[in-house]
Structures are given as structure tokens and as C-alpha cells.
Design a protein around this nucleic acid. Sequence first.
DNA 1: ATTTATTTTTAGATTAATCTAAAAATATAT
DNA 2: ATATATTTTTAGATTAATCTAAAAATAAAT
Lengths: 244, 244
Amino acid sequence: MPLHFVLTATCNSKYPKGSNFYNMVLTHTEENYLKAIFKISEEDGNETATTNAISAEMNTAAASVTDMLRRLSDKKLINYEKYKGVTLTKEGKSVATALIRKHRLWEFFLVEKLHFDWDEIHDIAEQLEHVNSPELVTRLNDYLGNPRFDPHGDPIPDENGNMPVREQVSLLRLKPGEVGKLTGLRNNSDQLMKYLKKNSIGIGTKITILEHHEFDESLSVKIDDKQEMGLSNKVSKNLLVQTE
Amino acid sequence: MPLHFVLTATCNSKYPKGSNFYNMVLTHTEENYLKAIFKISEEDGNETATTNAISAEMNTAAASVTDMLRRLSDKKLINYEKYKGVTLTKEGKSVATALIRKHRLWEFFLVEKLHFDWDEIHDIAEQLEHVNSPELVTRLNDYLGNPRFDPHGDPIPDENGNMPVREQVSLLRLKPGEVGKLTGLRNNSDQLMKYLKKNSIGIGTKITILEHHEFDESLSVKIDDKQEMGLSNKVSKNLLVQTE
DNA sequence: ATTTATTTTTAGATTAATCTAAAAATATAT
DNA sequence: ATATATTTTTAGATTAATCTAAAAATAAAT
Ligand SMILES: [Mn+2]
Ligand SMILES: [Mn+2]
Ligand SMILES: [Mn+2]
Ligand SMILES: [Mn+2]
């Protein structure tokens, strides 16, 4: 019998004594803020991450963000001037990419080894990414065969934080007759993933353009030389493919 | 069973909506206290876990323990009466064994798949055990082949919290000529593990008793039909073996 | 250039988890 | 049984992380 619970819990870790700049132990929360700032900064057009953008990304009140920005600034993880928005420092960026590396390695593990589907892994990886053990990351990476892309096609940063880059365009840009191999999604929405899964479309799937429909800008396509189907404009726009 | 209580909890990570009594979301700290209480209760002779025992196990001030006991009691995870010490409720015990299950499954993973040594895994498992995903535990268990004992020889509780039991005696109890297979340690001290590793002794190692030395109650033994060596009383006492 | 709207910060509270110091309860020893 | 020692609880503070409401700064519109 489902009762209505309001659940609040803080997942605090302790600060070990003797932590210095380079082995600073951050709280899960601080780590999540850094990831959010990184994500916002990556979004095209964003010079700096604003308080409101972070507030939206983190689902917290703007006032809470301001609080945290002061703290992250004190720790030299961000460059912060009141009212100006923030950027990550070198150190902050390094923390953020290390988190993303862990997140995506764990996602790869969950799909490759534990046979989860790509729409089931994100929330688990959100937890696993906070496990702090450099040796674990190294061994996990080796165990997985040093993968370069996660199950959503997102690049996995290497030990130094460098992301592999890849040429990919929206499926919408291909002309009839052209073929694209699905390499990523523009946004990793669960609904989109479930929809694609239902239609046997996943990373690596070969998609051939049959026709562009002017009226609603949708596509007719052929999937892996098997079924033909229509793809709405909204779906096609979100599919990133490599040609040839 | 009608459970009427409203509990308030925050977690930085999203907490599942529709939580009920049986999938209550606890903080890492609350989970660690439950594990500590479980551990103390398992130690022979301990009817209840006292505030000081918990304080020692958790490395926190006794006053902090009292605080937490009130909280855990409010959540019906422990039976608590002031000055009387505590026991786990059925629910509390179930949370604790689920944690131990996760801890030991992850330790098994770290050794079997990532090739860590048995003295390197505990701290990482301490973190991994708090990852909350029943599906993950199920799949991890299947992936590992439903192991019954962890790399230290400790039993892994099954889905229902039942621990496999095993006959094992201290090596000291064997008579000269008898053979024991190492199945566990009385306490998982890092120093002991490192010492054994250095002498090629691990779980499964065959140990033949050559001689008991009266003077210091030490042993002469043969390891896996290979090297002969002495084992101090303190070491032998901590080695648990199966005979035959 | 003012006014209005939006964004951001400050102020003031709350909760979990911790601490130290003091008080109260229980256990041990004389 | 009284005194002493130990254990446990209470009292009072602190810090991280959050909130709402109000003030201040910046941006947009008239
Ligand atoms: Mn993800
Ligand atoms: Mn991903
Ligand atoms: Mn362990
Ligand atoms: Mn173990």
C-alpha cells in the first residue's frame, strides 16, 4: 500500500584530514554541481554557467546555488564573480571529466557485462560515478577493453580528461539514398531510447534514407536493410549518424 | 499490514517516489550504523549492542550514537530503550544483511573480475555497497555465478538474507598429520592478509600440520605440499579451516 | 532615461550529522 | 550501603545542504 512519503536524506562523506589540493575529497553534492556546470558550459553558446541554469540543472533553488558557488569558489574549483556566472578552473574541469569518465565506464559495464538496456543504466551510473578509487577506474577501464564510447554513443574521457571526437551529423541532413550509422543521440531521453529500442534501433544501426516528406519534415527510412518505417522530424533531428 | 508513519528524508541523489516501508531510502550514515549494530550483535556473547560499542565501531562520539539511535528507533529499524542497548528489528536486520550481501558481492567482483588482491578491496566495497538498485544486485549476482563466499571466506547472504553456514575450526585445533583447507579468517586484518599473501597462503590453500610447539604454542606446517614454515600462535588462531 | 521584469544575492530557518562538556544513570568496588 | 568509576544521555555548538522570502543588481522594454 503506497504511502506518501517525503524523503530527505543527506549523503555526506567525511573530509579526511590532511587532504590537499590534489586529493581533495569532495561531497557528492559538490561533485554534482561541478558536473552540472561542465554540462552547461558544453552546451553550445554558453560562455559561462549562470546561477539559474545551474539551479534548473540541479533542481535546487537559486539561493542554494549561490551558496554552493561560494563554496566551490573557495576551493578554487570555479571562477566566480557575483552576478557574472561561473566557469570551471582547470582543477574543476579535471574533477568533472573524471566523473564523466567514471559515469560512462560504469554505463558501459552495465550494458556489456550485466546486459542492462541503454535506458536503464543512467540512474545507477549516477551513483557509481561517486565511488572514489583511482585504481578501480584503471582496472575497470582495462577490464572493459578501454572503450571510447558509452552505450549512448557519448565519448568516454581518457585518463587525462580528453574526449574522443567524432564526426556525426543529424540524420535529417542526409539525402535520400544516403546511409548513416547511428552513433549517438542529441539528448539522452529515456522516452527516445525506449522508442528506438522498440523499433530495433540502437547504436550501430544502419539507417538508409528513402524519402523526405516536405509537409511535416519527417523521413521514410530503412532499418538495417530490414523493416521500412517513418521517423518524425523530432526523432530524426535527435539521431546522430556517421555517413559511409 | 498498515504502516502509518510519515518520514522525512532528503538525499542529494533522487529518491524514488512511492517509497514505502519496505524500500525506505536511508542515508549512508544510517546504513553504516545498522551494519555496525549487526556486526556487534553477531560477535559472540553480545545480546545487545551498547552505545559505546557502536561508538567504537563507528569512530564517532557516544553522544552522536545516542542521537542516531533515536533516529533509527523512530524509523523502527532498531529496538531501543534508554541505557539498555539496542537490537535490530526484523526490518533493520534485513537492511543490514542486504548491505552485507552487496558488500561481499562487490568484493567478489573486484577480485574475480578486476583481479584486485584480497587486502585491497574492503574500502572500495564500503562505497559500492551503498549503491541502491535491487536490479543491479540481482544481475551482479548472476554475472558472478551466484557466489556463496567472498574473497575473505565470509558468507554472502542470499536474496532473503540467509547466510550459508560452514563448518570451520581454527587451525590450532588440528593435530599433527591432519590437513586443513583455509576457508576463512577470524578477523579480516589487512596485516594478516598481507602476511599470508607474502607466504602464498590464501582461501583454498591446503595446510598440513607438521608439529605443535609447546613453548610458544606455534605450529610447523606445510603449505600446499610445497614450502614448510612456522606459524605463530596468533596467526594460527586466526586461520579457519575445513578438515578432510 | 525611466520603468518594469528578470536574475542573483542576502537573510533567516531547518535538518542531518557531527562534536565537546556537563549531567544523569548504571555498574563496580570498598 | 556508600563511594567511585563507567556508561549513557542531554545540552549547546558547528557545518553542509537545503529552503522561502525579501533585497539588490542587471537586463529588457517602453
Ligand atoms: Mn548517463
Ligand atoms: Mn551515457
Ligand atoms: Mn569487506
Ligand atoms: Mn569480505
